[in-house]
Amino acid sequence: MTETFSIRKYLRDLKLPFCPGCGIFTVMNTFLRAVHELGHKDLSKFVFCSGIGCSSWIPSPYFIADSIHTPHGRSIPVATGIKLLRPDLNTVVFGGDGDIVGIGLSHFIHAARRNLDVLVIMVNNMVYGMTGGQVAPTTPFGTRTTTTPYGSFEQPLDVARLAVTAGACYSARWTTAHPDELKDSIKTAIKTQGFRFIEVVSQCPTAYGRRVGFKDVGEMLKWLKQDSVPIQQAEQMSEEESANKIAVGVFVQRKRLTLTETIYKIIEEAQRSAK
């Protein structure tokens, strides 16, 4: 690395809208560091799609890049249209847990199933942060949120594992307390083909931390670090033991024919036989 990393090089000169201590700063910084370390001087080889929610604001409009900020939950369909037309562009989707696996869950599963060649980075703060802290499909059981004042009565979704089942070529989970591992994971994912998924468990001090009793951001990060266990270790644990742990690591890395590969092959054949 000859050139030193400067985040400003990739960002528009705008004030970022995130709360102090938000995990998004770490995700944004780590992503751009990974891009820098891969040798991208700018984001011209990328196109970004994001939906609605705080983490959908990571690329839009702050990255000096093409970015499409879609309706809530619909970033993956828009990315589908872009990627099919422009297989040459690195298509990256940013979104929160509500956006990607709440309202947008069906698109997520189908994109993994059809092996759409995109990277989805989901910032999981376990709550609907932008709208004021409502229960999410990722909220731990029993957590008090503004719409579960007596505690959440539903089980959360294990998204990194779901991605594996649905057919992703790469699935990993880290937390904002693992920036180095996260950066390596992003670099690997950018270089991998097919549907790639990275979940980043992140702190939302405003709509989550404060309500569940964390005193400050530091305490939240300590929690993310302490409660994280490598997947291999998590798999040895009983259900009870692993209930409140965050399994981190790479869940899958494999090769499958991608959607763009199969679709362009069909076009080629159809054009040949139609002549």
């Binding site: 309706p71 369909p77 589908t80 099919l84 037309l85 679709i263 069909i266």
Partner: peptide, 25 residues
């Protein structure tokens, strides 16, 4: 496909028009 274009069936109507919007951009 015969004219070099792409036709795809999506998982629902939101996804369908979403992909259309992406393709347009």
């Amino acid at each position: 496909p015969q004219v070099g274009g792409i036709a795809t069936q999506m998982e629902d109507e939101m996804a369908s028009i979403g992909a259309v919007v992406g393709a347009s951009w």
